[in-house]
């Protein structure tokens, strides 16, 4: 799988290159600033990009802006954005075109290599990877409302994992229950939230996120 990396700290950039290469990604280019990133994304059109939010020359949210702009020019271009801190605002902006193929994670998550690589693959496949911190804030926002109150604790847990972008199989693995039990939970959740049921993992995740972001 072809990947573009944008990270200005050499130490982290090399780490990411090493890590992704070890998991059989082909790093087509690694850049260290916003303008080069936009150029790399639009010329290589990689299978996935791993992008640091804050990049030179402005050291503001240059990386995020370049990623958003690239997705405008190459619709659906899969981008996984990494940051030292996560903001609902940025998550919203990334998800706003509701095309999927978007990830937004704390840099800390890279340490859990297995999960991280899984997230990169998921985003490359048009899926979603939202940081647990973002999801828990989203859930807290709706915690006092009717539909979410009606969920059982287990269902709320499943909802959270779904909002992170995980497939039924992944959720089942994480909670140590069968996939069948999970799909029963998801059906219940969709019923209680009044969302149309869907078999497609990606579409279901986007529906849940859209619901929570409303």
């Amino acid at each position: 799988m072809r990947v573009v990396i944008a990270e200005d700290l050499a130490l982290l950039r090399d780490g990411l290159i090493r890590l992704l290469t070890a998991y059989e990604f082909e790093v087509v280019e690694a850049v260290d600033n916003g303008p080069s990133l936009l150029r790399a994304l639009t010329t290589h059109k990689p299978d996935v990009a791993v992008v640091d939010v804050r990049l030179p020359p402005t050291f503001t949210d240059e990386g995020l802006q370049a990623a958003l702009e690239a997705r405008k020019r190459v619709p659906g271009l899969p981008v996984l954005v990494l940051s030292q801190h996560v903001e609902q605002l940025y998550a919203r902006e990334l998800l706003s075109d509701s095309r999927g193929g978007v990830g937004y994670l704390l840099k800390d998550r890279v340490m859990d290599v297995g999960q991280f690589v899984e997230a990169v693959r998921r985003v490359a496949g048009g899926g979603t990877a939202l940081d647990p911190d973002v999801v828990s804030q989203l859930l807290a926002r709706h915690a006092r409302e009717e539909p979410l109150q009606a969920l059982t604790p287990r269902e709320r847990e499943v909802l959270g994992l779904m909002a992170e972008g995980r497939s039924n199989a992944a959720i089942a693995g994480k909670l140590f229950i069968t996939e069948k039990a999970i799909s029963k939970h998801t059906n219940n959740i969709f019923g209680k939230l009044g969302l149309p049921p869907s078999e497609d993992d990606n579409r279901r995740v986007l529906a849940v996120i859209a619901y929570l972001n409303a």
Binding site: P35, L38, R39, T42, T58, T60, Q65, A66, E69
Partner: peptide, 8 residues
């Protein structure tokens, strides 16, 4: 003015 997006 954000210099980011339009250079590229």
């Amino acid at each position: 003015i954000w210099p980011s997006s339009e250079t590229g």
